[in-house]
Amino acid sequence: MSATPDTREVVLEARELTREFDGVKALDRFSFKLHRGEVLGLLGANGAGKTTAMNCLLGLTLPTSGELNAFGLPLQANRISILQRSNFSSAYTALPGNLLVWQNLSVFARIYGVPNPKKKIAELMELLEISHLGKRVTGQLSAGESTRVNLVKAFLNDPELLMLDEPTASLDPDIADKVRKVVRKVQRERSIAILYTSHNMRDIEEVCDRVIFLHKGKIVCEGTPTEIMSRSSSNNLEDVFIKIARDGEILDEPKKEEAP
């Protein structure tokens, strides 16, 4: 665990979050805190439970048990006000393909009640280097373009909490690098709390302040990227990832509450 406790405001907190699907636990007593201005990476092999965690945190899926709070408020009862202060982007969802890019962004700017939406959209598109895409049909964009349009949508309401589900999946290394840098830049400027899932270790090393490794819905280790590498005597996160994915090796101190 981190040496010094984080004293910043807790933006998002899960306590003993469990989600079962047909008796199989996709998430098993998953607990964490995400602080203001912190980027927390959620790592794990396919099926580890990352998306399930995110869907629970977005209120899209109800947990089987456990407690969720955002901005100090219980999630389910305050969903709308919490969502107004948050945003989300995923490589696996898209904005309506048959609309033009500016049309889609205008609709969401209006939903979020963005003041001066035209200016905001123009600024963000410039930041992500996609100003030229405004009049394009959303469904005809390349993966890299579409990811960046999704990110513009995700930044529209100046979220305090941002959830990114594999934002760099299917991007070439150059675009992935640009996306990471922009996310990091905006995040630092505005002290956004970000929950970030990825398979891409480069992402994690560059963007995340702290990471949690999930394996079959359980946390198997947690810490800063450097801490984790030194603990597992690896010199890159990729090795750690492979070790965990293959045998769920637990690198942390043995788990305290393991049932006898």
């Binding site: 309506p96 969401f108 949508k153």
Partner: peptide, 18 residues
């Protein structure tokens, strides 16, 4: 159905839309 066909449902449900 338009929202289903265009995979927009998720964007709507994670926005503050009652």
């Amino acid at each position: 159905l338009e929202d289903v066909w265009t995979r927009n449902l998720l964007n709507v449900f994670v926005a503050p839309v009652r």
